[in-house]
């Protein structure tokens, strides 16, 4: 069994994120509802895994929380309470301040999530440029500090590099550094390790775990890879066809799945479990 997370993190704190009856449908004329009224809560410093097959609505949920779905494209109803505020009712500038500082997001493909024509250092410190008034020197100092924290080799050199000069794992580390530099309360990770090979996967997961334990960053971990979720998340929610069909402690859900879909999921990866542990 992987070591349980969060034993050191504060127990049952204030709710960090709460989804209430969240519904998302695409405005494509067919009225396809992708997320069908889900309720979900996360405490501060918690690690929550959102698992499900492709098309189950987990990524759409994440993008909705991050406010990255265009209003022309989707209709959202329900509430997303973050830090005591309903994100769906916030003005654009309020969202900008809140999301940029307190919510970070890591995407699946580290190749495309960094601007290919901008030096790594600038991208890492960009949130500081936007949300603080720190002068360049201070920003650079902080960027180097965070880059060291995420184990990027020789930060001062990497600072000047371009994304194509880094490996996939390093790019993902740079992404994490950029998302983490403002010390957000929540990191949304959309399949952050899917594009990486297994050894690098492990390193990135360990890094995320460290950030969670030392800095109590809440992790909302979206994945279809149950082994990864088992490895890092304390709580897990299983999504199936736009609904959450099962929610609970990771160990419990996986050892004693209630819903039929979860049982099938767990059965499907039980062969792989031994390899990973």
């Amino acid at each position: 069994m992987p070591k349980m997370l969060n034993e050191s993190a504060q127990p049952a704190g204030e709710a960090l994120l709460e989804l209430r009856k969240l519904r998302v449908s695409f405005n494509d004329g067919r009225g396809g509802e992708v997320v069908r009224g889900i309720d979900l809560a996360m405490e501060e410093g918690e690690t929550l895994g959102l698992v499900g097959e492709s098309g189950s609505g987990k990524t759409v949920t994440a993008l909705t929380i991050a406010g990255l779905l265009s209003e022309n494209l989707v209709t959202v109803s329900g509430e997303i309470i973050f830090g005591g505020k309903d994100l769906l009712k916030c003005s654009r500038s309020e969202l900008r301040a809140l999301q940029g500082r307190d919510i970070g997001m890591i995407f699946q493909e580290p190749m495309t999530s960094l601007d290919p024509l901008m030096r790594i250092g600038f991208q890492v410190e960009e949130p500081l440029r936007l949300h603080t008034k720190l002068p360049y020197r201070e920003r650079r100092k902080k960027a180097l500090e965070v880059m060291g924290l995420v184990d990027l080799p020789e930060p001062s050199e990497t600072y000047r590099k371009f994304p194509h000069q880094l490996s996939g794992g390093q790019r993902q580390r740079a992404m994490i550094a950029s998302a983490f530099i403002t010390h957000p309360k929540l990191l949304i990770l959309d399949e952050p390790t899917t594009a990486l090979d297994v050894t690098v996967q492990k390193q990135i997961l360990d890094l995320l775990r460290t950030l969670n334990e030392r800095h109590s960053v809440g992790l909302l971990f979206i994945s279809h890879d149950l082994r990864v979720v088992r490895h890092i998340c304390r709580k897990v929610a299983v999504m199936y066809q736009g609904e959450i069909v099962e929610y609970g402690d990771t160990a419990q859900v996986f050892s004693n799945p209630q819903h039929e879909y979860t049982q099938r999921l767990v059965a499907a990866v039980s062969a792989g479990r031994r390899v990973y542990d």
Binding site: A66, G67, L68, L95, R96, A97, Q99, G100, R101, I103, G104, M105, F107, Q108, E109, T112, S113, L114, D115, P116, L117, M118, E126, P127, L130, H131, M175, S178
Partner: peptide, 26 residues
């Protein structure tokens, strides 16, 4: 629809900056 643009938007980069500093050079 590239992630770096989404990421910039999430960080709270202003639209004008995304258009001219991030996308235009690309």
């Amino acid at each position: 629809h590239r992630d770096y643009v989404k990421n910039a938007r999430l960080m709270g980069v202003k639209d004008a900056r995304i258009i001219f500093v991030h996308i235009l050079p690309n």
